[in-house]
């Protein structure tokens, strides 16, 4: 006989994957930071025309989107770790996780709007 199956709403076996994601996304963000500083130095500071033309550049938009995607994924892994440590009641933890997911999804939408919207 197979005993009752206990499905837990919390905890899983994604620790190793998340560990790797946290480091990979950190490296992506560091690379973007170096690139951005390089662009600023190359242009001898950031004037308004340079700033505008930078965000008009399709490649820079895509690279900036990759940075934000890495940032938001990194933020999710970090927030999830913090909630697992401090929000002990399962209902509270899941509720806060939903809040964080909604918040990060909103940031993602804002990012797309900012990068490709016709402002």
């Amino acid at each position: 006989m197979v005993g009752p199956v206990h499905k837990l709403a919390v905890g899983a076996h994604y620790g190793g994957w998340d560990w790797l994601v946290q480091r990979a996304t950190a490296l992506v963000m560091l690379a973007y930071t170096v690139l951005f500083i390089g662009i600023v130095l190359w242009n001898g500071g950031l004037s308004y025309p340079v700033w505008k033309s930078l965000f008009a550049n399709g490649a820079f938009r895509v690279v900036s989107f990759v940075f934000m995607a890495a940032l938001l994924y990194h933020a999710w892994v970090g927030a999830r770790n913090v909630l697992m440590d401090y929000a002990k009641p399962t209902a509270l933890r899941l509720a806060l996780m939903i809040v964080v997911v909604a918040l990060l999804a909103a940031y993602a939408g804002w990012t797309v709007q900012l990068l490709w919207g016709d402002a």
């Binding site: 308004y48 700033w51 505008k52 965000f55 900012l114 402002a119």
Partner: peptide, 15 residues
């Protein structure tokens, strides 16, 4: 993150 997005958004929108 929201301050960053808000500021870049505003800076690109108009002077």
């Amino acid at each position: 993150i929201p301050v960053l997005l808000w500021f870049v958004d505003a800076s690109l929108a108009s002077p």
